[in-house]
Computed example of a mutant assay.
Amino acid sequence: MLEDYRKHVAERAAQGIAPKPLDAVQMAALVELLKTPPAGEEAYLLDLLTNRVPPGVDEAAYVKAGFFAAVAKGEVHSPLLTAEKAIELLGTMQGSYNISPLVDVLDNAALAPLAARALKSMLLMFDNFYDVEEKARAGNAHAQEVMTSWTEAKWFLSRPVLAEKMTVTVFKVTGETNTDDLSPAPGRGRIFRCMPWRC
C-alpha cells in the first residue's frame, strides 16, 4: 500500500496536483501497518493517518474512527498511538463517525477531559446530542461541561473575528444543488439535524 500510494503521490506531483486522500481499503491497510509498523516508516504512517484521510462521512473516515475508538478502549494497540492521541485525533474529524466514540469516552475518567475538549467544538452532533444530554442529566461532570460550553456558544465565540472586508468568488450553478454536490455523502437523502438551540 505504501509503495502504491507513494507512486500515486509522485504521479500527481508531476501533474502539479495534490494526491487523492486514502480510500477505505487503503485506510484498512494503514491500520494493519500501524499495529506493526515497518522500521523507518513510523513518521510517514502517522502523517498518512493524520493528514490523508478525509473527515466526516467518507468511508475511509469510518475505518479511521473505528480504529481510534478501538485504540481508546484498549482493544487494539499500536506502538505509534496512545489512547490519548487517538482521542485527540478523533477530535479533528469534524463530526459523524467520530462522535459516538467521543461521547462514549466521557465515561472514562482518564480520557474524558480530552473527549470533552473535542466535543465542545463539534457542531455536527445529530442525535448524539441527546446522548451527551442524558449523561449530563445523570451527573457526568464532563458531559455537563460540554453542554455548558455549547450553551454559551464557546465554539463560535472562540473563532477569529471576521475581517471588515472579504473578497469572494461566487459560482452560479443551474439546476438543483444540495450539500451532497459540495461535500459528497455515501447516500442521498441523508437527514441532517441541527442543534436544538439553533433550529
Rank of each mutant, 00 (worst) to 15 (best):
M1L: 12
M1T: 09
Y5G: 03
R6F: 01
R6A: 00
H8A: 08
V9Y: 08
V9G: 05
E11S: 08
A13F: 06
G16S: 02
P19R: 10
D23I: 08
A24C: 08
A24Y: 09
Q26P: 00
Q26H: 04
M27L: 11
A28G: 08
A28I: 02
A29E: 15
L30S: 05
L30G: 03
V31G: 11
E32L: 07
L33E: 01
L33F: 01
L34G: 06
T36I: 08
A39T: 01
E41P: 04
A43I: 00
N51G: 07
N51W: 07
V53F: 11
P54F: 15
E59N: 10
A60R: 09
A61H: 12
Y62I: 13
V63T: 06
V63L: 04
K64T: 08
F68R: 09
A70M: 05
A70E: 01
V71L: 05
A72K: 03
K73P: 00
G74K: 02
E75C: 02
H77W: 02
L81H: 05
E84M: 05
K85V: 10
I87M: 09
L89T: 04
L89S: 07
Q94F: 10
Q94R: 14
G95Y: 03
G95E: 01
S96H: 12
Y97P: 00
N98G: 09
I99S: 08
S100A: 15
P101F: 02
D107Q: 11
N108A: 01
A109W: 07
L111Y: 00
L114T: 06
A116T: 03
A116V: 00
R117H: 13
R117V: 09
L119S: 05
S121K: 13
M122W: 07
L124Y: 12
L124K: 10
L124V: 12
L124N: 14
M125E: 06
M125R: 09
F126A: 13
D127M: 07
F129L: 03
Y130S: 00
D131P: 07
V132S: 02
V132T: 02
E133K: 06
E134D: 10
E134R: 10
R137D: 00
A138F: 02
A138H: 03
N140K: 01
N140E: 04
A143K: 01
Q144C: 04
E145P: 13
V146K: 06
M147K: 06
T148L: 12
S149A: 09
W150P: 04
A153W: 13
A153I: 10
F156A: 11
L157H: 15
L157G: 13
S158G: 15
R159K: 13
R159D: 10
P160R: 02
V161F: 11
L162A: 15
L162Y: 13
M166G: 12
M166C: 13
M166A: 15
M166E: 14
T167M: 11
V168A: 11
T169D: 14
G175Y: 08
T177Q: 10
N178Q: 06
P184M: 05
A185V: 15
G187T: 14
I191T: 15
I191F: 11
F192C: 10
R193M: 14
P196S: 00
R198P: 13
